[in-house]
Design a protein around this nucleic acid. Structure first.
Length: 625
RNA sequence: GCCGUCCUAGCUCAACUGGCAGAGCAAUAGUUUUGUAAACUAUAGGUUCCGGGUUCGAGUCCCGGGGACGGCUCCA
């Protein structure tokens, strides 16, 4: 463990002592555990005789401020293990630590400040006079298991913020306020993208028309990128007999997280928690020649996992997860090429969003070959091809930064991609996993040039990972203001008075021409007109035999209520609609529209053709940005 | 699952220590015909998350369950 502490870490650590001192004065029966410095402050874990609540925090904080001026330096003392234990009568937590430390060293170090003693390795401020009482604040309570072990007692953790200056503390608190505003759990509901129902259950998001538009746009984007690399769509049932997971090994390993179903005939089924076993059975339907390898199956579909209730959180952690999953069945010698293609897809997909991606390589631990399945020779080959791909992509392999020894899955090494969200949290998004285990278990092979049966490998590849989680990151990344190509409603037409309603209808129809046989949907606010269509990416749109539908039209709303124009604009701004087209007397006379861009002022009047040209350019910028 | 906090109209929130469930926005109807972020009037809207209990009386107190949030643990 590193002993180097920067000054702010010393301040935070010293404040943890101060917190413990305040708690011990107010609650002499409490037992202390540990209290380190963390990224934004400090915490300390206690076991209280009687539970405390958030309401007690101001009092504890007040006591800290009372004690602070009475402290100066921390003085170091050494005690033997038995002397040390006397300092903590009946405190099994400290005794456990002392036993542990005394294995390494005879003497246990203590630090004293004011009248407060505590077992500690050091790393404090020179003098408590350095600490400005306005630079820290207790924030909240939380439960935490002793030593992070769920079988051990649950302690009460008190968290505090601490920074070098009052200004930095204020800035951090401001950032938290901003992050709260962007919270996808709140924004996603306000923008009417998804909802939850107590009747359906926790962790099971329901997707509204608007949310579904965004999901499909994202998935289509992934699909267009995959399609050109020879992927084919497949579809599978969402349940399976347990036999499939017994064969794959998931039944034993993940049985707690499987949602099981028993039929009236007492057959056991399970909801699928992943798609790979199903996909293997599509590949295994008939023998394959080396000439038709690789086989690339793409399938965006929901999986179901019995997550513990306390782990659920908005869209970040749910029980029904949509994976943009793909499996490539290929020969070992094709791995490098296939992974390279997937990496291209990942790069192209993430570029328009402006996400900085971090890449991480997870390898096996060669000292423990027993932890991994299959032939060590296969592992060496697989890992070296992943390494080659990393370096060929200009990534320096650094064991401290982006290589995790022993982090490989038991079936193979993997490359993970991480994106940062608005709170600075890193989320794993895309993943490319090499799997030598599943083909073995399901006896997947092709017939090679010599007419021999050749074992193949599988590559698991998800670009977004989970649409739910990716969307939660996107909502917070954009603060709900999706770029034009992704906005569920791209344009809203706002007539100034009822007199212009007919002209507004004409404008809407011009931007979103109804197709033959299409039922004319009621055009009202918050109902995206012909919602399934929309200008996505013009270079991808035309001449695509049935797949491309209406690349010419926009997703458009008309707000024809008899409300003031100010109110209609306010409404559209709150819904983060990229463009507002205001039509009044002047526009009708001049055959123009007045364009207002989201977050901007009036862009002035223009002809409808000019507006179309402008937004086509904007959408096209997605592909090249 | 564990620790803590919370749950009142679609949303944001009121209702002193247990004493008649209310407001703004949204919705609906009417009036208004509006020029770049909230027009006016009226109407409707409730098993106070659910189920028990204590009490003359429960939104409020107690027990059980559900859900949300902050953490812990977990995440193929």
């Amino acid at each position: 463990m590193s002993k180097i502490s920067s000054p702010i870490e010393q301040i935070r650590h010293s404040l943890a002592h101060l917190l413990a001192a305040a708690v011990m004065e107010l609650y002499p029966d409490a037992k202390r555990a540990i209290g380190p410095a963390i990224d934004n402050g400090f915490y300390f874990d206690f076991q209280f005789a009687k539970p405390i609540s958030d309401a007690d925090l101001p009092n504890i904080e007040k006591k800290m401020r009372q004690i602070l001026p009475t402290w100066d330096q921390f003085t170091r003392h050494e005690l033997s293990a038995s002397e040390a234990k006397k300092q903590y009568p009946k405190n099994q937590f400290k005794h456990e630590l002392i036993d542990e430390f005394s294995k390494e060293t005879k003497k246990i170090t203590f630090y004293k400040s004011g009248e407060y003693w505590d077992l500690c390795k050091g790393g404090h401020v020179q003098s408590m006079k350095e600490i400005n009482p306005d630079t820290f604040k207790l924030t909240h309570l939380a439960g935490a298991y002793w030593r992070g072990d769920e079988k051990k007692p649950m302690l009460t953790r008190i968290y505090g913020l601490a920074f070098a200056s009052k200004k930095e503390l204020a800035e951090y608190e401001q950032m938290l306020v901003e992050a709260k505003k962007r919270d996808h759990k709140k924004l996603g509901i306000e923008l009417d993208l998804f909802t939850f129902s107590d009747l359906v259950g926790a962790g099971l998001p329901l997707w509204t028309p608007k949310g579904t538009v965004v999901r499909e746009l994202l998935d289509n984007f992934v699909w267009e990128l995959r399609r050109v690399h020879g992927y084919q769509k497949v579809e599978i049932p969402h349940i399976t007999k347990k036999d499939l997971y017994e064969a794959s090994g998931h039944w034993d390993k993940f049985q707690d997280e499987l949602l099981r179903i028993k039929t009236r005939e007492q057959h056991e089924f399970a909801m699928k928690p992943m798609n790979c076993p199903h996909h293997t059975q599509i590949f295994a339907r008939r023998p394959h020649s080396y000439r038709e390898m690789p086989q690339r199956y793409a399938n965006t579909t929901m999986v179901y996992r019995d997550e513990q209730t306390g782990e659920l959180s908005g869209l970040s952690r749910v029980r029904s997860i949509t994976q943009d999953d793909a499996h490539v069945f290929c020969r070992l010698k094709q791995v490098q090429d296939e992974i390279s293609k997937i990496w291209d897809i990942v790069d192209k997909f993430y570029k328009p969003f402006g996400f900085e991606l971090e890449v991480r390589l997870s390898l096996s631990d060669q000292n423990h070959p027993e932890k991994y399945l299959g032939d060590p020779h296969g592992w060496i080959g697989a890992e070296s091809s992943l390494k080659k791909i990393m370096t060929s992509r200009g990534i320096d392999l650094d064991p401290k930064k982006n290589v995790g020894l022993g982090e490989a899955a038991f079936y193979g090494p993997k490359i993970d991609f991480m994106a940062k969200d608005s709170l600075g949290r890193q989320w794993q998004v895309a993943t490319i996993q090499l799997d030598m285990n599943m083909p073995e278990r399901f006896d997947l092979a092709c017939v090679n040039e010599k007419g021999e049966k050749e074992r193949i490998v599988m590559i698991h590849a998800a670009i977004m990972g989970s649409i739910e989680r990716f969307l939660s990151i996107l909502i917070e990344h954009y603060a709900g203001a999706f770029p034009l190509w992704l906005a569920p409603v791209q344009v809203v037409v706002l007539p100034i008075s009822d007199v212009q309603n007919k002209y507004a209808e004409e404008i809407a129809a011009a931007l979103s021409p109804p197709r033959e046989g299409e039922i004319d949907l009621p055009v009202t606010l918050s109902l995206a007109r012909r919602a399934g269509r929309g200008l996505t990416s013009p270079d991808l749109a035309p001449a695509r035999g049935g797949e491309s539908r209406g690349g010419e039209s926009l997703r458009i709303d008309l707000d024809a209520r008899s409300e003031s124009i100010g109110k209609k604009i306010r409404n559209a701004e709150k819904q983060k609609i990229p463009y507002m087209l205001i039509v009044g007397k002047k526009e009708v006379e001049n055959k123009t529209i007045s364009v207002r861009q989201r977050g901007e002022k009036d862009l002035g009047a223009m002809a409808i053709e000019k507006f179309l040209e402008k937004i086509k350019k904007e959408v096209a910028a997605k592909a090249t940005s």
